[in-house]
């Protein structure tokens, strides 16, 4: 999970920030088709104003020499960002790798809605939990296929 930068935050602010980091991460990593389907199934959707139109740009990805040392610029990743404001409330941001404008706008809208306490639990159940499940499944599936290629050097000598 992301690391914290600022140290001057109350425990509540820190918890709130971690919660937001988690859902923003899920919204960004989700397949657009999954997010889109879940979004379309939502019974009620608020209206919002687009504060910043979806914009395609880049973020420079960095590595470290030896994995832990001197930082260096590896190359850029394509990113789309968007900001929306709900009619009576929160501003939400979407930062999503790739060039799908709708993905960034939906991520921003859900981010804004999740900041609205009255909506949070329902949205967690309707969108974040299923997306998390899909991502975990995908990762586990890849990981189990990799695990099947593990070299077992000592299989031959094992036994009583």
């Amino acid at each position: 999970m992301p690391t914290e930068h600022s140290s001057a935050a109350t425990p509540e602010q820190s918890a709130e920030r971690r919660a937001r980091q988690r859902w923003m991460s899920i919204l960004a990593k989700a397949e657009f088709s999954d997010l889109d389907t879940l979004w379309n199934n939502l019974p009620s959707k608020p209206t919002w104003t687009v504060v910043r139109l979806p914009e395609i740009g880049m973020v420079m990805a960095r590595g470290r020499a030896g994995g832990t040392g001197q930082r260096f610029n590896l190359g850029e990743v394509a990113v789309t960002r968007c900001a929306v404001q709900l009619e009576f409330g929160a501003v939400g941001f979407g930062y999503v790798m790739g060039r799908n404008r709708r993905h960034a706008e939906l991520a921003a809208a859900v981010d804004a809605m999740l900041q609205t306490p009255s909506r949070r639990d329902a949205l967690e159940r309707a969108i974040i939990a299923p997306l998390t499940l899909r991502l975990d499944e995908k990762r586990l599936n890849r990981s189990r296929k990799a695990a099947a290629t593990k070299v077992e050097f000592f299989t031959m000598v094992r036994g009583s």
Binding site: T3, H5, F93
Partner: peptide
Amino acid sequence: GEVAVEFAPEELGFPIEIGEI
């Protein structure tokens, strides 16, 4: 394998994961 890309947008002031590479 896959690693997360983290980025701290100015307007947020803290890093978020924006995807995986």
